[in-house]
Design a protein around this nucleic acid. Sequence first.
DNA 1: TCGATCCTGTAG
DNA 2: CTACAGGATCGA
Length: 262
Amino acid sequence: MPELPEAEYMVRRLAQYAGDAVIIRTRILRRGYPAPRRAAGRVASYGRRAKNVLLHLDTGHTLRVQLGMTGHIYWIENAKHPPQFTRVLFELAGGSAIAFEDSRVFGSIEIHPTTRLDEVFADYGPEPLDPAFHWQHLRGRAARLSLPIKQFLLDQSRLAGLGNIWAAESLFGAKIHPEQSVSGLSDDDWRRLHSAIRRALTRAIANTFKVTEHPEDFPGADLVWLNVYGREEKPCRRCRAPIVRTVQAGRATYFCPRCQPL
DNA sequence: TCGATCCTGTAG
DNA sequence: CTACAGGATCGA
């Protein structure tokens, strides 16, 4: 499930519930799961980079949680009863814990001997919601490339933080076809794409909080409001043309053929 | 730059 | 039962 908005939600919820956590023991609950076997220390702060959840320890180490497809990390009151698919359990002083669930086992946790994000994420592109992120960064990182824009957006080393859902939604917002080659994008395209990405993510974070904190106010909608993702054959909310689903580099892609012409 | 692949749950 | 899943890496 998790993309950037859910990662952001998990971070804020951890800070709220497990604020002063002191990790006294780390337990790997599945043999061979990629995670540090003996991480310990007080959690000085929580953070996020792209789709990663970060725990900064007062030892100067950073725990980088890659959520994969099914990762969830959250505070639980009783360390003795971790949820079913917990792969890593950080036991805290006082008997509670931080549980990392990952049913599909695509995630991982790394420990880095630094708190500097530019070191932990040396190979990552710009953070889409960073105020310093501008459309020229996108254009610059696409220079001399000729791959489809959708694949460009999913490559964390070019732009860090978009997953399959928000790449599709951002392209819809910018009215750009997912197969469009980056070499053919105009400055105006890059500008629209830049602002569509920020709008989509900002709105998605707000929706994630609303829906998760007050599910009763959104009956039947456990997800945020989407324009194209998962809406194959359904009418485009903008022009009523049926949404098309294709496969690009092995991933499902959704778009409106009328609003996003090639 | 691509397809295959890691592994498990859920929906049809 | 089969198809599919919101991620990322690896080898050809």
